[in-house]
């Protein structure tokens, strides 16, 4: 094989890759470091005190006492496929920060004191996560517009939302937030909501666009 037979296809790929923005530097960009100098995981830094694995005997722990958002008039009704009345999908990320404060962790805005996170894509709220049972976050003080709250069971969800489009069941690994717990996720993409239970206790509600 002549040199040009190898060189020309390589040059073509190189130029095409540059044209579409596929370069080694952006495909295999180095992951950012956390403020403590440690490596992040998918852009998320391990929270202080959450680096060691929790002991089985520590689990489960009751959810911390709910705290209300700082703005007293904020609606706490979670609407499927939408979010909250004042902080909904598609809004600028600044609305989330105004309502809940929070800090940036990779693509997420995290407000552990209010038990709510947001996934931010292109500066807009793409998904919302409301936590009800966590070792590191306060429990969200609200409920869904159909009445699902921290005390609800999977049966309550089925009664209010019908049969899920998909059910996922697994045991949380030693690296997860609640090691050893039985996780059950009830997904309703037709409504834009997923309910996750840990040992039949509501762990979180995820709000996203309906499909």
């Amino acid at each position: 094989m002549k040199t040009y037979q190898v060189f020309i296809p390589m040059l073509c790929f190189h130029l095409t890759a540059n044209l579409i923005g596929l370069t080694a530097s952006n495909v295999f960009a180095e992951e950012r470091l956390c403020p403590d100098g440690k490596r992040s995981y998918f852009g998320v830094c391990p929270e202080e005190g959450n680096n060691s694995r929790p002991l089985q005997s520590e689990l489960p722990t009751p959810a911390p006492k709910p705290k209300s958002p700082s703005s007293g008039d904020l609606s706490l009704k979670i609407i499927q496929g939408v979010g909250l009345k004042e902080c909904y999908l598609g809004m600028d990320a600044s609305f989330f920060q105004r309502a809940f404060g929070g800090k940036r962790e990779g693509q997420y805005l995290i407000a552990p004191n209010h038990g709510v996170d947001a996934l931010i894509v292109d500066g807009k709220i793409s998904e919302l996560f409301f936590y009800f049972y966590s070792k590191t976050k306060s429990s969200f003080a609200g409920s869904t517009d159909r009445g699902i709250n921290a005390n609800s069971s999977p049966l309550d969800v089925t009664a209010k939302y019908g049969q899920p489009d998909r059910i996922g069941q697994s045991v949380i690994s030693q690296y997860g937030a609640m090691p050893g717990a039985n996780e059950k996720s009830m997904e309703y993409p037709r409504f834009g909501v997923t309910f996750t239970f840990w040992d039949d206790k509501l762990a979180d509600i995820r709000i996203y666009s309906k499909r």
Binding site: Y41, P46, Y108, D117, L119, F129, Y175, A177, Y208
Partner: peptide, 19 residues
């Protein structure tokens, strides 16, 4: 996958993979 992962789940996946 059109799944909706929390930051904790991504953290857990990263740690598992690293291990």
């Amino acid at each position: 996958r059109k799944m909706h992962y929390t930051s904790a789940e991504l953290l857990s996946l990263g740690r598992s993979w690293e291990s």
